[in-house]
């Protein structure tokens, strides 16, 4: 073999850029899969590390799904939120009530209406209350006509505005629309949502630390190897790479385990929830992890793995210098 005797024998300058790019990509792929192989060589400890990460990721994911489900239920409730307009007793003529109802139906904020005439109301009351005989004693129907309104919007503010408008109408006696409990529920959900975010933040930190510690051990186990790499001219970037990929794999596998755990839990809950929904005559279906949420979960896992590895490598690689 021939030796060049000058110092500027940098091979990167000699090779064509495209070929170098090719070699670079191949090298990355090689490191990606060889670090996977390294993890697979110690299956049980690797699995345990990934499982810890998985559980840490599964908790906020599960809570997030719980919130989504509660949100869905409360949305259902909100859509059935109705306003009951009690018409003034002096308007007891069916034709007048119908005319008023027609007028209301034109209102853009009103989705639909249903008229309960005094007669219907009395009949309903008779059936449900059990005071049927006592009601017979009444000379005249004391119940007013009621128009039940389905608001077009599900926003609280819009409905408050509609409520004010309706109250000012001359035909209307009182409007019944109790949104307060729904508002309270939403506020509680907001608080829980914040709590889930905090929990997710803390558990992400835990994932970072778990991966960081795993990578730290991996670095010190390969101390001699790293020294030799440095002696023959490896840059820090080069030495860092396999450890970053190990972090990436741990994070990804952790995400995968979290995904499996959450789906098993959902599967276990599915039947009892279905039974409960039947009891409530509800069409409620459990919100599950869709494709996008699954992707986000895996992506976050992998990203946390990379970040944890990055932190550990940056800290510990500097300490290792060839002897």
């Amino acid at each position: 073999m021939k030796h060049s005797t000058h110092l500027q024998n940098n091979p990167r300058r000699k090779a064509k850029p495209s070929q170098q790019g090719h070699a670079w990509l191949l090298h990355h792929l090689y490191v990606l899969f060889s670090s996977l192989g390294r993890i697979a060589r110690t299956p049980l400890p690797s699995l345990m590390t990934a499982a810890v990460i998985g559980i840490a990721l599964a908790l906020p994911t599960g809570l997030y799904l719980l919130l989504e489900n509660v949100q869905q239920i409360s949305n259902d409730w909100e859509s059935v939120a109705q306003m009951s307009l009690f018409i003034k007793p002096e308007i007891n003529d069916d034709a007048k009530i119908n005319a008023f109802a027609k007028k209301l139906e034109q209102h853009p904020d009103i989705h639909g209406i249903r008229i309960i005439t005094p007669a219907q109301a009395l009949e309903e009351y008779r059936q449900l209350s059990g005071f049927g005989d006592a009601l017979k004693a009444l000379e005249e129907n004391p119940l007013p006509a009621v128009i039940v309104i389905q608001p077009a919007s599900s926003e609280v503010e819009a409905n408050q505005r509609l409520l004010k408008n309706l109250e000012q109408l001359p035909e209307v006696d009182i409007v019944q629309f109790d949104m307060l409990w729904l508002k309270r529920l939403f506020t509680i959900i907001t608080i829980i949502r914040r709590g889930v975010l905090i929990l997710a933040g803390l558990l992400s930190l835990a994932v970072l630390l778990v991966i960081g510690n795993t990578i730290r051990l991996a670095i010190y186990n390969r101390r001699d190897e790293i020294e030799i790499y440095k002696l023959v001219g490896a840059t820090d970037t080069f030495i860092r790479r396999p450890f970053l990929y190990i972090g990436f794999w741990y994070g990804l596998f952790g995400g995968l385990i979290a995904w499996v755990l959450v789906n098993i839990s959902l599967w276990l809950l599915k039947k009892p929830v279905k039974q409960l929904a039947i009891l409530y005559e509800s069409q409620f279906e459990l919100v599950t992890l869709d494709a996008l949420s699954s992707f986000i979960l895996l992506f976050c896992g992998a990203l946390l793995g990379l970040a944890g590895a990055w932190l550990a490598v940056g800290q510990h690689l500097k300490n290792i210098q060839p002897r």
Binding site: P11, A15, Q19
Partner: peptide
């Protein structure tokens, strides 16, 4: 091969 791998040579 180590020094060559590090320097990014082709296979």
């Amino acid at each position: 091969a180590l020094p060559l791998v590090i320097a990014g040579f082709r296979h």
